[in-house]
């Protein structure tokens, strides 16, 4: 009986936490301070243009981190983002979509341009020096790590979420990896509506 009570209590706690998280994401009214692009970071996009924190202002942004030597997660996220932009129709123009490489050694702006040519042209690729990319990732609390696989090859561990930022460059909430299309599109619509 006591054990059953404990289980019910535990279930209630889980439900409450889940409910709060969902509420928090759905409400979309509060922003999380301290997450965003640091003002002093200088990056370069895949067309060779400078990219700074000013590029994340004026319009809301969906921004995510990855690398082009990634067989699965990154192409899937890029395809998903393309499909979400399609679903948004004309509203897609009210959104910045940014893909930041966490593997700047291999992902030069030119490599990003070649890679992104297979995806929605509205997705802007961003690279930079390893030091600047490090600061950028830190600004977004993004985890990444280079892992040697032997024979001179390496891969990258990295955070997979898409970060949603409001028009002032403040973090609003995430879209998780392969979140159902309707939920992700709804999050983007709310982001655009402000």
């Amino acid at each position: 009986m006591v054990r059953r009570g404990l289980w019910i209590a535990a279930a209630l706690v889980v439900a409450a936490v889940a409910g709060y998280v969902v509420y928090d994401m759905r409400a979309n009214t509060s922003t999380v301070p301290g997450i965003g692009m640091p003002a002093d970071v200088r990056l370069t996009d895949h067309r060779g243009r400078p990219f700074t924190a000013a590029d994340l202002k004026g319009k809301p942004t969906a921004i995510f981190f990855g690398f082009t030597y990634c067989p699965e997660i990154c192409p899937t996220t890029l395809l998903d983002m393309g499909a979400r932009l399609q679903a948004l129709g004309d509203d897609a123009d009210k959104l910045n979509v940014v893909f930041v490489t966490i593997d700047p050694e291999r992902d030069t702006p030119r490599q990003l341009a070649a890679y992104l040519s297979s995806f929605d042209p509205r997705i802007r690729g961003v690279s930079g020096t390893p030091e600047q990319i490090g600061k950028m990732a830190k600004g977004f609390r993004v985890y990444y790590r280079k892992v040697e696989t032997g024979g001179g090859e390496y891969t990258m561990d990295h955070s997979t979420a898409v970060y949603l930022m409001d028009a002032k460059g403040r973090f609003v909430g995430p879209i998780g990896y392969q979140e159902p299309a309707d939920r992700a599109v709804a999050s983007l619509k709310r982001l655009i509506a402000g």
């Binding site: 082009t68 030597y69 699965e72 192409p75 291999r106 070649a114 040519s117």
Partner: peptide, 11 residues
């Protein structure tokens, strides 16, 4: 998987 133009890796 099919790969994109500049992709260096495939699964």
């Amino acid at each position: 998987r099919p790969t994109s133009a500049g992709a260096q890796v495939g699964g």
